[in-house]
Amino acid sequence: MSYIELKNVSFEYPGGFLAVDDISMSIEKGENVAIVGQNGAGKTTTVKLLNALHYPTKGDVLIGDMNTRKFTTAQVSRRVGYVFQNPDDQIFHSTIIDEVAFGPKMMRLPDDRQKQLVNKALSMTGMKRYRHENPYNLPLSVRKFVTIASIIAMDCDVMVFDEPTAGQDYVGNKRLAKIIRTLSEQGKTLITISHDMVFVADHFPRIIVMSNKKIIADGTPQDVFWNLPILEEAMLKQPYVSRICHELGVGDRIIRMDEAVDAIAFACGIKEDMA
């Protein structure tokens, strides 16, 4: 059995709105997974089921040996950290360092361990130099890194990032990519929701596509971004470089920029990387 299991899970909001309809998925410990799909496809509801912000109305959610039904949100969230889509739904302290220190404090870890975790989280997210600032002095896209730091400081096994790429600039996207890579190397299980197909194609070995409350595809970037009927159903597009290689008939299911450069250079008769 995998570390995370969703077994025929449905979720209906009070009032009867069905947001997730009979989905199943398995994620191994240490996997780095992206979830893509339109707004309203059920992505956020699905990840909220993972840390018991929601409990399934049908089916079961298993995290390791825990069935979320039998535990409180506080218990499950020690294992599964969730970074909200909107940082302002999460932040409630007046300095960044207090905000990031809150999780470790609530977990009643020894003082020096708390300090160590907070420091590491602030450094990794680039928030160290702002630590004594009010989070609201920073623009929204930077504030997002405060909420990411808060979850990293809790050192959960599983971390869920809900649309961290929204509104990010070049530097923000690079920083995010680095955080994801570092956490992944540390063996964390990561699940990231994003609308940025270039970012997803570049940084995730596995992509889950949701559409209309269901999972409609689950595989490598090649599997997903070269399955054109699936993309159409999910109203998504290929990454730009895939599109152009597709149109030009160059290479084999190109996903990333460096692959596209190789394939096009080859088609132009340049056999080897001169650089």
């Binding site: 470089v241 920029m257 650089a275």
Partner: peptide, 23 residues
């Protein structure tokens, strides 16, 4: 890019192709 500003994907692709010797 050195100023921290992303180029369009096609411009980045074009620049890298030129570096590779594509005319």
């Amino acid at each position: 890019e050195a100023e921290g500003i992303q180029l369009p994907q096609y411009a980045a692709l074009g620049s890298r192709l030129r570096e590779r010797g594509v005319d």
